[in-house]
């Protein structure tokens, strides 16, 4: 599961960058910006979930 997670984020990143190019080429720069933000939010939602799991694990381990 681990490497898939990395590849999933990379895929989203590449998709967002392609959409960015297409939108900015056709003159819709603000929509390109919105696409980047949307991609970032999606990726962050996935990463934040992983981070909270990890922090609970660390909290249990180190007794923080």
């Amino acid at each position: 599961m681990d490497v898939d997670f990395i590849f999933r984020i990379a895929a989203i990143g590449i998709l967002v960058s392609v959409l960015n190019q297409v939108l900015s080429r056709s003159g819709r720069d603000e929509q390109a910006m919105m696409t980047t933000l949307a991609g970032l939010v999606v990726v962050l939602m996935m990463v934040v979930q992983k981070i909270s799991d990890l922090f609970n694990l660390v909290k249990g381990l180190f007794g923080l």
Partner: peptide
């Protein structure tokens, strides 16, 4: 997309 690059390193 530099922001996503950092999200990926974070992950």
């Amino acid at each position: 997309v530099p922001e996503l690059a950092m999200a990926l390193t974070l992950a």
